[in-house]
Each structure stands twice: as C-alpha cells, then as structure tokens.
Write a protein that binds this DNA or RNA. Sequence first.
DNA 1: CTGAAAGCGCTTACAG
DNA 2: CTGAAAGCGCTTACAG
Lengths: 342, 342
Amino acid sequence: MTTKRGAKATIRDVAAAAEVSVAAVSAALNGKGSLKAETRERIQREAERLGYRPSRVAQAFREGRIGAIALVLPLMDSVDEQQRLIGLDYYMAIAAGSASAAFAAGYSLTLTPPLSSREQWRMVRADGVVLCDPVADDERLTVLDEIGVPVVTIDRDPTREPMPPYAAGDNYANMRLLLDHLDDEGARRIALLSADSSWAWTQDGDRAYAEWCAEHGHEPLRVPVPLGKGDNDALEATVELLQRAAPPDAVIASAEQYTAGVVNACRKLGRRIPDDVMVAVGVDSRSALQNDPPLTAIDLHPHQQGEAAVRLLLDRLAHDAARPDPVIVPSTLHRRASTHRG
Amino acid sequence: MTTKRGAKATIRDVAAAAEVSVAAVSAALNGKGSLKAETRERIQREAERLGYRPSRVAQAFREGRIGAIALVLPLMDSVDEQQRLIGLDYYMAIAAGSASAAFAAGYSLTLTPPLSSREQWRMVRADGVVLCDPVADDERLTVLDEIGVPVVTIDRDPTREPMPPYAAGDNYANMRLLLDHLDDEGARRIALLSADSSWAWTQDGDRAYAEWCAEHGHEPLRVPVPLGKGDNDALEATVELLQRAAPPDAVIASAEQYTAGVVNACRKLGRRIPDDVMVAVGVDSRSALQNDPPLTAIDLHPHQQGEAAVRLLLDRLAHDAARPDPVIVPSTLHRRASTHRG
DNA sequence: CTGAAAGCGCTTACAG
DNA sequence: CTGAAAGCGCTTACAG
C-alpha cells in the first residue's frame, strides 16, 4: 500500500493506507463532515507520512475554473533586448495591484508575453483577461472575443462596440489640472510632448490641451514624440522646442518614457528647472520623484487601477450579468520643485 | 439539443448536435484520428455554431499539470503604496524573460503577491516556482518544500542544503570587473555602497571587494546602505563619504536602488562626474543609461536569467531527475562616460 | 459516523 | 472509419 517512488501520492493512496474511503480522506483534510477525531487524526497522519498533496489541477477542474487572470502589458510586446529593459513603474504598479486583488479573491495573476497568432492566444490559461492600453481596433480584443474569454481593459478602448468594461484615470481632467497648476505658477507658454497614437489617454490629453489653450488664448505648442523607441526622441524634441525663437517656459511630458529625455535636454542646453523652464510629467515615476529637482507629476494610482480592473473582471465572471460601469480612479497631482520658482 | 443560454457548450453538446460520439468531436477538433472529411467538417461547423471552446481546466486536468509557473519577486513583498512604486528594471526584465521561456514551453507565468501564511502558499496554483533573491534560511523555500512544489532560485540560496538549482550572474567576478575597470581609469580610492543582507549577490560582491582591496593594497571603503527604504539612504551615505577628509575618487553603487541617490549626492555637493568622482553601478537600468552623464554599469542580463531559471525548472518537472547544475549567465560591463575622464 | 457512487470535461486506448 | 468506455483526482450529495 505504499506509493511508488517518484509517483505522487493521490487521495486513493491515502485512503488505502488509512483504510478508509476517499470521501473520508477528503473530509478529514478539508475539515468538513463529521469524522471521529481518532479517524481524522489517523488519516492526517497517513497523509503526512505519504507526503500527500491534493492535486491543484484536479481541484481546479472540479471547481470549474482555472483560478487565474491574465494581465497583458504593452511593454511585453517588444522583442528586442534593448526594449525589454523598459520596465515602467506605471505598469509594474498595475501588475502588483492586479496580483493582490486577484489573489485576495482566490485567483492568481498570469503575465502574458507577446502573442501574435490566434493559436497562441488559445493557449492562454485564464478565466479572464486584463488588457492595458488597448489601441483602436485592437486585434487582441477581437481574438479574445472569439475565444470567448471575458476582458476588462485599463484605459478605455477607443473604438470597440460594445466597449469592454474598463478602469482608468481621468486623463482629460488630469491634463487640465497640470495646465491650471502651471498657469498658477506663472507659466505663459506651455508646451506638450505627446504621442501620435490611438490610445485613449493620449487623445484625451491632447483634447484637453487644445481646449484649454483655446479657452486661455494660448498658442498650442504640441510636439508629437514617438513612444517606446528609447528616449532620444523626447530629448531631441525638447531641444528643438527650447531653441525656438519663442521657447516655452514650461514643458509637459505626457508619458513616463519622456521624463529623462526632457530633463537631459534642459541640462544639455543649460536651462535650469524651474527657473528657466518648468517641467511636469503626466505619469509619476521614481525618475520623476528622484530627479534633481523632483518633478511635478500626476500620480495615476496605477496600483488601484490594477485592483479595480481585476475586481471588474471578477464581477463579470461571477455574475455574467450586465456590463458594469467603468471605474475612474481619481488621480493626484504631486506638486514638486520643478514647477515652483522659489 | 441546444445549449442553455449562459451555460457554456461542452464537448457533449457538440457531439449531440453533430450526431457523433464525443471521441469523434475530440478527434475532429484536434486534427487527430481518421475521420471522414465530411464528418470532420460537420463537427467543426456545429462546434462553431454552438460557440464551443474546449475547457482549459479539463485539458489541464487530463494533462496532469497546471501549466503555470509562479514567479516570486522581492519587490512584491512590500505593502505600503510608496514602496510599491519601486518597479526595478532588473526584476521587470526577469519577469519578461521568464514569461517568454515559460510560454514557449506551453506554460504561463504567474506573478505571486506577498504571501505570509502557509495557507496562502498552498493556494498558489503552479507546477513550480521561480524565486528571486532568496535570503538565508528563507522561510518561503521551507514552506514550498513542505508543499512539495519544485523550486528554482535566481541568485543562489546562501545556506539551504540541499541547495535548490539556480540561475545567477557571476557576482564575484562582476565586482572585480568593476574594480579593475575603475583602476584602469585611474581611480585610487574606490568606495562601495553595499547592503548588509544575507543575499548571495551582496555577500559575493563584498567578498570580491575585500579581496581586491587587500591584493591591491587599497584601504577598503565599504558603506552599508539599507535596501528598499526609498533612496535617501544612498544619498546620505554618499554625501557622508564625499565629505570625508580623504574622500573616494570613485563610488560603486552595488544595487540598482542606489543609482539616483549617488548621483543626487554628487550633484548636491557640486562634485562633477566623472571629473571629481567616478560612479559605477552594479546593476544596469534605464536610470543609469539615461543619466547625464550615462553611468558605467554591469548588465546582468536579467532577461536571460529569467529564461534560464524557467528552463531549469521545466527540466526538473520533466525529468524529476538529478539536481541540475547552476546556470551562470555571463554579464557585460557597459563602459560609459561616468568612469572615463576625457 | 462512514462508504460507495456520481460526475466535473476531456483524451486515449480499445473494440467493432 | 466510428463508438462506447475508462480514467485523470478530487468533492459533494446520497445511502446506510
């Protein structure tokens, strides 16, 4: 009645060893049913002796759920080594928040690497997916829909109908918050580095900027900067801006990726922050906080966004009901030295 | 014979609809067996019509494996919001590398949030665990061993016997590489910021530093700096170092976390890098690369370490055989402007 | 208080 | 070429 070496003991092995039924073993180990204390202890002893561990797959199978949620981050989509180094604080915090919310509900969080083919997506073992920063007509959402996997996005889908549930910051309001703050601090020519992308947060920010400028009679100074390709683009764009005949007296870096480029451009040209030019960032990060001087930035509370997205997803899984409302996570403006002239 | 609304179609529903056996459905959908083309097509049509998706859990159950590997990162162990912001490039790259190696082998990668109790660890649904930076007598390894989950570590376990298989950089050699490089560039008093921890990489680095100093007749200038508690500690330690009567002419920041602190300390005291003091970092990051001037750093190729660790784990899962040898991933010294006086 | 059985959804031999 | 059955390891009603 001993198990074979190497083969893992099953509930049957324990039942045989303790000379009871498998049901009794199950009850004893899960503290259910009503077993005589003596029997329960004997079963536990035998289980211990055989090194029995209930099979997690079998349990999952019985529960009818995988017990995992997949998280898809844009940064995992890059293939070359250089790019992979780019671990943005924002996404890391989303991952941490998602993981803890998932785990609190008895789910684990799965990181999904770059997937191209439909085949690969079918391999994903998860009860649902949290997808960050969908683009317009995002193919991945189409595939997931075909496969029948529920999806929640972080940042809303710009085009899809019906729009999947989502969690997001209030990107429109945040941009206006930055602009008002810079205005209060005396900035009169505020430039914006922003990506030409179909992401909702970019478009919301651009719209807020355009409207704010129109309302305040300011000339818009928006410079498109590609995202992702390293940070030279942001540096060059900022250098170009600052060397214009009428340079800006404040620069907003809308993306975390631009942070170093903007700062280095100022340093390169000998422009002091904030005296010659104020700098503010649309997404807070360690770089912003640790910069000398520390940079004013919007904290999008990505940890909370991750938590919120996972909870939305779990609701969908549980109730299979009506599409829930989006969750807008309030953001915080951290006023730091980069936008305040002593 | 139609499925209930809401309830997902099972293989039985498809079999009934197509008027064949479940075995035929399985064969048709997996392209196995020898079905008449006409039958196969009819089955596929019905499956399509019913929106049938094979249950991933059931498949997993049959395969006898969960199909997931858990990754445990030290940074996920912090609870307060402030700490969570700390997404180190090093760990992010490990996660990306692990995920792609896992996925290539048909496994997914699960992120495990901070777990304290044995109970919580039992909830982890994974066929194996990759644990980063084990400390001496790491409780987590003890628990995982009890639960019977195979483990591979990144960076070796400092004390455990038998030592779990691991992937790591050559931390001893790397420290000497940095020291030799600084020596070549003319540094004569090289200080080291290093943590008082039981981590193997810290201890290896400290040992290399002590031996190198002894061999070269240099006075050791090692300053212990706590890890994790934000970056003020590194800044203060560096300020203190640079204000000594005999200040160092080079500083090695052994951890990625020290990067900003060291740079800001130099800036605060008006010491120019590299002219007044050279700076080198033991772990490469975006901060090091984007600093002005860019900082010389050791690239530990964390992406490859992640891949290697996952492959070690998969080997163990597959063969259940002898303990494999550790994998030492070669590191690269990136010589940058911070250690070269024009 | 305990046992025997059914069943979760799939795939893989094995019969016909 | 196709069907009926066994079985992966567990838990949950249901009998005794």
